[in-house]
C-alpha cells in the first residue's frame, strides 16, 4: 500500500508546557488553510485547563483547594465544583477496578492525583478538539490522549517504554484516543496495594487504552498493582484494552489492544 507520508497541506505545532510538576507536550496538526492565529485560542484554552487543574488539585501546595479539603479547612461544598466531579469519577474508577484503584486507601486522606493528571490532559485535548486543528495529541509525562490522525489514513503510533530497559520500547501501539502506562520503575507513591497498604505491584508495567485518559490512568495503576488477572476485567469494560509486562518480562495483552508491533522480536512469534 502506498501512502503519502508527509502531507504538504498540513502543518504541525508543538507546545511544551511546564505544569503539574512535569512537562506536558501538546502536538497539534492543522490544515494549511488554518492560520496560527486561528489555532491559538484553542491552544491557550488547553494550556489553561492544565494550569487550572494544577492550581486546584496540587497536593504540594498547601493553599490549593484540594489541600484545604484534605486538611479539613475547606468544605467540599464550598470547594471548586471540579473537585467533587473528580472524586465522583474516582469512585467510578474504584468500582470498575474492583477496588484496586483507591484514592481513599492512603493514610494521608483522599488523594485523587492518580486520576487528575490524565483527567486534566483529557480536558486539554477537548479544548483542542473544539478548535480548528484536525488532529492533536497531549502527552502528560507518558500518559497520552489524541484525536484525529497525524497523516491521512494513519493512526497516531506510539512506543511503550520497556520497564526493564527504559531506553527501549517493549511494544508499539496505534492510538485512537487515550493510553496510560504505569510501572514499578516510576515514582512509586501511587503504586500502593490498597488492600495491604504496602508498596507493591504484581506487574513491571501496565498500559491501558480507552476513550478517557483519566480512567486509563486509574485502570493502569490498578492493573499494575492487581496483576494480570485483572486483564479480563479491563477487557470487559467497553472500549478499554490493556497490555502488560510481567515481573518476569512476559508480555500479555487483551485481544482488542491495538498492538502495532513489538520491537525486539517478531509479533507473530509472540503469539
Amino acid at each position: 500500500m502506498t501512502t503519502s507520508i508527509l502531507d504538504p497541506t498540513t502543518w504541525t505545532m508543538r507546545r511544551e508546557e511546564e505544569v503539574m510538576g512535569t512537562v506536558v507536550v501538546l502536538d497539534v496538526y492543522a490544515d494549511a488553510s488554518v492560520t496560527c492565529d486561528e489555532l491559538s485560542p484553542s491552544l491557550r484554552a488547553a494550556i489553561h485547563e492544565l494550569h487550572e487543574a494544577d492550581r486546584i488539585f496540587s497536593t504540594y501546595d498547601p493553599a490549593s483547594a484540594l489541600s484545604r479539603v484534605r486538611a479539613g479547612t475547606l468544605d467540599l461544598a464550598n470547594a471548586p465544583r471540579v473537585i467533587s466531579d473528580v472524586l465522583e469519577l474516582c469512585r467510578d474508577a474504584r468500582e470498575l477496578s474492583d477496588g484496586w484503584f483507591n484514592p481513599w486507601g492512603l493514610a494521608e486522606g483522599v488523594d485523587p492525583t492518580g486520576y487528575v493528571k490524565g483527567w486534566a490532559a483529557q480536558r486539554a485535548l477537548e479544548q483542542l478538539r473544539a478548535g480548528p486543528a484536525r488532529a492533536a495529541m497531549v502527552n502528560a509525562a507518558g500518559d497520552l490522549v489524541c484525536y484525529g490522525v497525524p497523516i491521512p489514513g494513519e493512526l497516531f503510533r506510539v512506543g511503550i517504554v520497556d520497564p526493564f530497559r527504559p531506553d527501549s520500547f517493549v511494544a508499539l501501539a496505534d492510538l485512537r484516543a487515550a493510553l496510560a502506562t504505569s510501572g514499578t520503575y516510576e515514582r512509586g507513591a501511587h503504586l500502593i496495594d490498597p488492600f495491604t497498604g504496602r508498596a507493591d505491584a504484581r506487574l513491571a508495567s501496565a498500559s491501558v487504552s480507552g476513550p478517557d485518559l483519566g480512567m486509563c490512568d486509574a485502570l493502569a495503576t490498578a492493573l499494575c498493582v492487581a496483576g494480570e488477572e485483572m486483564l479480563a476485567t479491563i477487557h470487559s469494560l467497553a472500549g478499554y484494552e490493556a497490555f502488560v509486562v510481567g515481573l518476569d518480562g512476559t508480555r500479555r495483552w487483551t485481544t482488542g489492544f491495538a498492538l502495532a508491533g513489538v520491537t525486539d522480536y517478531d509479533l507473530t512469534a509472540a503469539g
Binding site: T22, V25, G159, A173, Y185
Partner: peptide, 9 residues
Amino acid sequence: IQSVSGASY
C-alpha cells in the same frame, strides 16, 4: 512514532 507512553518522570 509520534509519542512515547511510559511511567516517566
